[in-house]
Design a protein around this nucleic acid. Sequence first.
DNA 1: CGGGTGTTTGACAGAAGTCAAGTGCAGTGG
DNA 2: CCACTGCACTTGACTTCTGTCAAACACCCG
Lengths: 246, 246
Amino acid sequence: MNPLDFVSGAAVVRASTPAACERCGSRVVGVCAALDIAGLDEISHETRRTPVKARESLFREGDPASSIVMLMNGTAKLSRLMPDGRQQVLGFRFSGDIMGFTQGRMYASDAEMLTDGNICRMTRPQLEAMLERFPATQRRLIDLCAQELALTQDQLVTVGRRHAEQRVAAFVLSLAEAARRRGTPPSLFDMPMTRAEIGDLLGLALETVSRAFTALRKRGLVRELGGHKVELPDMAALAALADGDG
Amino acid sequence: MNPLDFVSGAAVVRASTPAACERCGSRVVGVCAALDIAGLDEISHETRRTPVKARESLFREGDPASSIVMLMNGTAKLSRLMPDGRQQVLGFRFSGDIMGFTQGRMYASDAEMLTDGNICRMTRPQLEAMLERFPATQRRLIDLCAQELALTQDQLVTVGRRHAEQRVAAFVLSLAEAARRRGTPPSLFDMPMTRAEIGDLLGLALETVSRAFTALRKRGLVRELGGHKVELPDMAALAALADGDG
DNA sequence: CGGGTGTTTGACAGAAGTCAAGTGCAGTGG
DNA sequence: CCACTGCACTTGACTTCTGTCAAACACCCG
């Protein structure tokens, strides 16, 4: 497996036919990427771009899945709560990702912002109407799901078969890959999540995550610049380590 | 999380309008469940029911994803190979499940039969044609994907946040749930996989799996009857244990 | 009946979790 | 402007769980 593919389950796909969306911002993302200008215009009447703040909850596990959320800006966290109070982070999401789409009637996870940002909500009926009216968006939703599934499976491999340091290496590489997809430099990016949240993603204690970062820092594979900025001087070596050759 | 929902990532959905499929057998499964009699008739011209034997490979990771496979009968294993030779089992599949659907051009995992069985293959062009001709199958594919995604996330919770014995408890409960969906008694089912394969699913060594089974047997929560038959005398207690109350 | 595969069990080593203390940093308020 | 306070992070010591290695056993298939 290529650790660059691991990522935190993000379903990021760029618009194939870039077009401006007045309400949602300049980039066309998520399912809407399949829409032409006319379709976008129709949809944009019904969705609103709204600012959200760090730590704000977007939806909760078990709540009725009344709408899907497109993340226009910022970073979010998807997680589930265990009965004993601990949480499993399912993945982090970035601008361009969609969240909250489910087959069932309820959300399958919590979603919470890690940073300030902007979202667009589309209600379930609006989504259904769009799928009906623009069949191309159906195929797109299938692709988004299939891709997200593949990425979740990748994470399963990471959590199931890698040691602590390898998991953290794979994790930072996934952030790099997510940055690349957003069109920003992959070797220098933001990492707004805490050690505890990373641990809950990777199935590790926060102290173990901290020790792994220290080890990677000492090897010169990861550099933390302050302000949650991270630099990866040697991504190839990091990938080798993640795959067990380190 | 409900441990009964954990399962091995199976996307099992019964036909809402049961109808006979001459080529594939008596039950209508997978995407085809959305088809009416006329559609089934049309499709059935192009797919063939073929017997497969235990340990036979259905497709391999990295091969061109030329067809999807509907498992009519028997049990299969989906897995990925790590660079160091170890494998991560992504899930087990049962009669009624579909395998090999992917957004990319290649299969994302290996698929191998654990038992003798029967499959139907549908080529990619056939699938595309069906999706085009019968839009209802598109919605069905979305649902199958979304459901499979949710189940894979469940497994992530299991592997990431549970101890060995809890994982094994969650695993046998998932087999029970899969049996229930197939319409067979949930407290008595086949378990054709080896301890090593269970370990590769749960991120455990085979010895650890064996010890966990011994412990569950001693507690009277699991009974192995020979011939790969397993009985669960107290599923509620098992669920409590899986959730950490044990 | 025999051989191979899968399973169980034990002893030990090693990785990660837990508990605890101390450090650093950022935002707040005087 | 600076001290204070709270949170996140780091580091150490110790414990516990799981992995590894090894041997014996059980079971199924030929």
